[in-house]
Amino acid sequence: MQIRTLEIGVGLFLLAGLLALLLLALRVSGLSPTADTNTYTLYAHFDNIAGLTVRAKVTMAGVNIGKITAIDLDRDTYTGRVTMAIDESVNNLPTDSTASILTAGLLGEKYIGISVGGEEEVLKEGGTIRDTQSSLVLEDLIGKFLMNSVNKEAK
């Protein structure tokens, strides 16, 4: 029955390989088969999305509530339109909620943080968050700072 143990060994090996692929897919790359089923879509327009990427997370009060599924340019308003998939369980976002682009740590990834508003009405599937804060662009900041000091000196 030597061939039998061989077969079992090889079977276990193949199983381990498939399990590894499954782990890589679900645990490591966060590919979740149920992710798309219970989310709804929201849009937000930003003047500058610099550094934000697709699949970045969407948080509220630091809790992950969804992710970014698409980023494109709105041809009419010349702003960046970000499409977000928000968990169905969080279906009570007021229409005047604010979306801002935040950075995790000094050099960390960019993500969207939503702070809650005060309206009674809530955002529905396909709704748009109007109140947005764009990404902090380091170059602009430095530019402003320099301009300020130049202006001061001129006075």
Binding site: F13, L14, G17, L18, L19, A20, L21, L23, L24, V28
Partner: peptide
């Protein structure tokens, strides 16, 4: 298969 197991 070995490479995937290695990564995991």
């Amino acid at each position: 298969l070995l490479a995937m197991i290695f990564s995991v």
